[in-house]
């Protein structure tokens, strides 16, 4: 449990947010040409990093906006929060 600094609302309790998992997974540009292996990679395979991870979050019980976050999954420390579409910070 931790506090998240929503880029739109400010600091709120983590329980107000829902996590959308790994960020920056690019949606296939030509889905019809994807092989089964590539679909599996896109849909299911995850880095699931122990350490610094880039992930998507949604302020579900607040502004309901999506944003990105850089968090260390080994200690839940948040390194950066940035809006969708912004360039990910170098950590």
């Amino acid at each position: 449990m931790f506090v998240i600094n929503c880029p739109y609302c400010g600091e709120r309790d983590q329980s107000e947010f829902s996590c959308g998992g790994e960020a920056h997974i690019v949606r296939p540009k030509q889905p019809t040409e994807l092989s089964d292996d590539e679909w599996a990679e896109y849909l299911f395979m995850r880095k699931n990093i122990k350490g610094v991870q880039f992930e998507r979050w949604n302020h579900a019980h607040g502004c309901r906006k999506w944003f990105n976050m850089v968090r260390d999954t080994s200690n839940d420390k948040i390194h950066a929060v940035y809006k969708m579409g912004e360039k990910p910070p170098v950590i």
Partner: peptide, 9 residues
């Protein structure tokens, strides 16, 4: 959310 902290909320 993903976490390896062995704590929980």
């Amino acid at each position: 959310y993903i976490s390896y902290t062995q704590r929980g909320s």
